[in-house]
Amino acid sequence: MKTIFTLVVFSILFVLTGCVQETKNIDMTNDNAKAVLALDYRDFDQAATEMVQSLLSSGKLAKPEGGQYVLTTGVITNDTMQRIDTDLLTAKIEEDITNSGQVIMTSAIGGKDSNRDSMVNDLRDVRDSAKGEEFQQDTLPNKGTLIAPDLSLSGKIYQRNLSYDKKTQQVEYYFQLKITDLKSGLRFWQKEVLIGKRGSNKAVAW
């Protein structure tokens, strides 16, 4: 009787563990999975690609007198109900426009910590402190060597929730970016990418 009971328990445990959904890696280049109501990596990829295509085809980054613009990433506001690191959008854009050879990004100044390299200022603090004497002086940066950015990339991601019908909700995501000339304050370029989704009212978009 005891043996049968043990067998039954083992069988149940075996069946239950067998029911657990298997974890799989996503094929990021051929992901045909269903859409989700919240923003996923495919939405960021799509928005970033449309932004880069618009920016590069606009020709606004080509400096008339030759050379390259210095660009910094300013503030990108997350005005959605989701906890989003806006670098998910901007990192791809920064990478592609840098590789296009038209701009150089600066880490000396930026809208948030991840856009800045704190070592740029830390090294200067060291230079100006007593510790600076411990370094070979010609390896320390001189004053007036940092290059100020010409342009700034800023914008926001905005979410709008609407009731579509009794069972369905509509969620609209607006990705808005602009590039401003920091000397004149004039806006060089701007682009909005809209991604809309409809799904069950039971699904949560945050």
Partner: peptide, 9 residues
């Protein structure tokens, strides 16, 4: 290769 290599709708 680039950071924005993906399927565009």
């Amino acid at each position: 290769e680039s950071a924005t290599d993906n399927w565009m709708p």
